[in-house]
Amino acid sequence: SKISVVHCFYFRGGAELLFDGVKKHQVTLPCQPEPWDIRNLLKWIKQNLLKERPELFIQGESVRPGILVLINDADWELMGELDYKLQDQDNVLFISTLHGG
């Protein structure tokens, strides 16, 4: 089985307002047989970090349209999006470009 590793998640552009205003979350993800990908990570965030109104952050199995995702400072569109396999020390940044609601 895989060793659990530490990841940093950042929330910006107003997305932090959904996480008690906390911009940086240092997290040790629990061990699981399959490697963590972004799809699983979003589920985990929804269950463990999201304080209120998950629909403002998650839509279906992905992030809500208008929320950008950067993996290690690069556009997740370059990295396989939901299928990207998280690696040791990866950091993931979520930036909201939404106005309101």
């Binding site: 552009g13 208008g66 950008l68 400072d73 470009t97 106005h99």
Partner: peptide
């Protein structure tokens, strides 16, 4: 909005978040 968000992030442009 995406270009702007990436530009601000990459080049350290400060912003202030105000609720809607």
């Amino acid at each position: 909005a995406k270009e702007i968000a990436f530009y601000n992030h990459f080049f350290g442009v400060p912003t202030v978040i105000v609720p809607p």
